[in-house]
């Protein structure tokens, strides 16, 4: 976390597959710059030797019996599809 945050909102938006208007890009650049500047205070802390906590309650490797259970029918899985046909999701053509 060296120096000023160098967030490039337009670039990150591409990574996130999220189009933004020019106005949103400008606004987020300013607002998130402030949030990141506020978060700079995390630099103050010595975290040497501290383990990263992915959860507040550490639990690992939970298993359950491998038993068949009820699952969605194709109709249920498709029930909210923007477009569907022949028990399949229909999407626009994306390869030539």
């Amino acid at each position: 976390m060296a120096g000023e945050p160098d967030l490039d909102v337009a670039y990150v938006a591409k990574l996130a597959r999220l189009n933004l208007s020019a106005e949103e890009t400008r606004l987020f650049q300013k607002q998130l710059g402030e949030v990141l500047k506020y978060a700079e205070k995390l630099k103050e802390i010595d975290v040497t030797g501290v383990e990263a906590a992915a959860h507040g309650v550490p639990i690992f490797n939970v298993f359950r019996e491998d038993e068949p259970r009820d699952c969605f029918t194709a109709q249920q899985a498709l029930s909210n599809a923007p477009r569907q046909a022949n028990n399949l999701f229909i999407v626009p053509k994306v390869v030539e």
């Binding site: 976390m1 978060a39 802390i45 975290v47 501290v50 383990e51 990263a52 906590a53 992915a54 507040g56």
Partner: peptide, 15 residues
């Protein structure tokens, strides 16, 4: 490392 991982470590300190 600078943000996400560091935040997870400080999370451990908060815990």
């Amino acid at each position: 490392d600078a943000y996400y991982l560091r935040a997870q470590k400080v999370r451990e300190l908060i815990r």
